[in-house]
């Protein structure tokens, strides 16, 4: 099969990374729209979560799809990183060539985001699905246990989303070339959209802990 042959190459793995990465970024838009319901108050947010729950197994299928995309993205990233490490000379070079920081730290920012994701699943996702108790969803998210009532969790969340934005900065730039969008008539649209994804979407996510976890706390 040609597709397996292609996926076996470094370029094929980069294409897989680009497709899974862009899809996950697209998912972030829907996730953010849901999160912004928090600003509309407890009824709006709890109602939104219940609406999602009603979709039942469709949600489970979507979750499985997202998880597999994350795993493909992480796997390809690590394989390529190891390959790159082997490719460079053992003797370090005196070099003045400077590559963009966002590109050099992609694995590092990605690893941090992955740790964040695992925590995110084991807190919000797990509690929403299995150990809600008698609290509402709104109370869990803003509560002191795992939510934005906890200052450490709030700060961790802000840093992680900030790093995710930085991760996407290089990700979108690179994916444009990997998926051969550069040089076509879609290039301009794509790169304008990229700024929305690496800056405005993370900004939207961060606005929630900043408002509920920091501003409201300071106001008492």
């Amino acid at each position: 099969m040609k597709i397996f042959k292609a996926l076996n190459t470094s370029v094929g793995k980069k294409i897989a990374m680009a497709i899974t990465g862009l899809s996950l970024a697209l998912f972030m838009v829907f996730h953010l729209i849901g999160n912004l319901n928090l600003f509309l108050g407890p009824e709006a947010f709890n109602g939104y979560v219940l609406k999602l729950k009603k979709l039942g197994f469709l949600i489970r299928i979507a979750e499985a799809g997202l998880l597999s995309f994350v795993l493909i993205h992480v796997y390809s990233g690590i394989v390529l990183w190891l390959k790159n490490k082997r490719a460079i000379s053992k003797t370090p070079s005196y070099s003045i060539t400077s590559t963009p920081r966002a590109s050099r730290y992609t694995l590092l920012t990605g690893s941090f985001v992955f740790i964040f994701l695992v925590m995110h699943w084991s807190t919000f996702w797990y509690k929403f699905n299995f150990s809600k108790g008698n609290k509402t969803y709104y109370e869990i998210v803003l509560g002191p246990e795992v939510g934005f009532g906890n200052i450490y969790y709030t700060l961790f969340y802000i840093i992680a989303i900030g790093l995710l934005g930085y991760h996407l900065k290089h990700g979108f730039d690179s994916a444009g070339q990997t998926l051969a969008i550069k040089g076509t008539k879609y290039e301009k649209t794509y790169y304008s959209l990229a700024a929305v994804f690496w800056f405005w979407i993370p900004f939207g996510f961060i606005s929630i802990p900043v408002y509920f976890g920091i501003i409201l706390r300071l106001l008492g």
Binding site: A6, K13, S174, A180
Partner: peptide, 30 residues
């Protein structure tokens, strides 16, 4: 190694081979 699309190669190339070639390779593979 694999390409991280930073463009350092084109910047240093004595024949100024452009990044458009890498885009074309990716397109050919797809």
């Amino acid at each position: 190694g694999s390409c991280t699309n930073t463009g350092a190669c084109s910047a240093e190339c004595p024949k100024e081979i452009s990044q458009a070639n890498i885009v074309r390779l990716n397109k050919e593979l797809i």
